[in-house]
Write a protein that binds this DNA or RNA. Structure first.
Lengths: 192, 192
DNA sequence: ACTGTTATTGTACAACTGTATAATAACATA
DNA sequence: TATGTTATTATACAGTTGTACAATAACAGT
């Protein structure tokens, strides 16, 4: 048993598509359950059988995106740009960090919503915790070092700070530009 | 003319008090307009005359808090702890940054809400922009340096990263502890 | 094809939302 | 104290919310 029920698959797909459709014209915060169900052709009671609020649907979406972020960390360095391999500017840059920018650019539309104003902080912290766990994964040789938890949160949110700035410029900078900004920022801090 | 209308003052005060009262037992997200007005003894229509949602009341609150943050930046260094003046660990730490931790500790209850899960990102960005503008203020000799905007956002959000970690430990660390964590984090980064 | 399970629907309900209107009361100013 | 202004109230309305229920249809496994 435990095969996925086709009814559920169909319902959720309808809701997904309805949400992405409405999101083209409206911000996430302004979409209500009734409208979403009307668009999806799904009974409102059915919605509440699976979710509690509209944001939960988006959250389910974003969980997939976060999964992709984790995946990209485990893969070999295929995402690293040619630019990086050539330039000596990058010699001190951890290639794993570089992938975050690739990932964000890939899911640009998502991160525009997540980093926008007047949205639940839930998504922000999903992103935060994902990056943070990668930082921990990278640096730990043996066990988790409790004393470094502030260092992890500092670095994690610092990277997101760059991405917030990126978001505010409508992601107009290229991934390579962001790499350069990261290197320059780090060296600027090291100078002080 | 343009004296403040006593009716408005009275109404807003009633709503303020009602909100702070309800916040003791409920999270901001769970408070609705009707409940707030019932508690405040204010007509619901009056509420909508001044605000659009419950969060706007909290936002008006938080604007005062942010004002205090800006104030503290302009004051002399009276907030700096005795610990800092003695220890040589702090020799490289900008005393202005130290005040942020003082400020957050002072308004601990506020920042517990603002940094909690499932709250609007609006307050986060209010905090972000306040700190960021202070960073810019500090570093600019002449005019605003557009090329450094990523450095500003990096450092700003990095500091907030520490505060997020602080928040997650229920602010159990002292302000001096946080100063130490900041110094240690910065030196850890400089080492790489 | 049969059967037990359960997701889905339609319906109903009280409470909340956002907006609008007219009447009233509280206000600032001269 | 009188006057013009406007914040507040009471009321009303259509739409949304969250929950509950019974009936039905769609499903998975044998």
């Amino acid at each position: 048993m435990k095969t996925k029920d086709l009814r559920v698959v169909k319902t959720k797909k309808a809701i997904y598509q309805a949400l992405t459709h409405i999101l083209k014209n409206k911000s996430l915060t302004d979409i209500n359950v009734s409208e979403l169900c009307r668009q999806a052709g799904v009974n409102r009671g059915t919605f509440y059988f699976h979710y509690e609020e509209v944001g939960d649907v988006f959250k389910e979406f974003f969980e997939e995106v976060i999964l992709d972020l984790q995946e990209s960390y485990k893969e070999p360095y295929k995402y690293i740009s040619a630019l990086q391999l050539k330039s000596s500017v990058y010699k001190n840059l951890d290639p794993k960090t570089v992938r975050i920018f690739h990932h964000v650019k890939k899911y640009e539309d998502f991160y525009h919503i997540i980093l926008s104003d007047n949205v639940s902080t839930t998504y922000y912290y999903m992103f935060f915790d994902a990056i943070r766990s990668n930082f921990i994964e990278d640096s730990k040789i043996g066990e988790y070092d409790e004393s470094k938890k502030f260092v992890y949160s500092f670095m994690t949110n610092a990277i997101i700070g760059l991405i917030i700035e990126w978001h505010r410029s409508n992601f107009k900078e290229s991934v390579d530009d962001m790499n350069i900004h990261l290197v320059q920022t780090l060296s600027a801090i090291a100078r002080n």
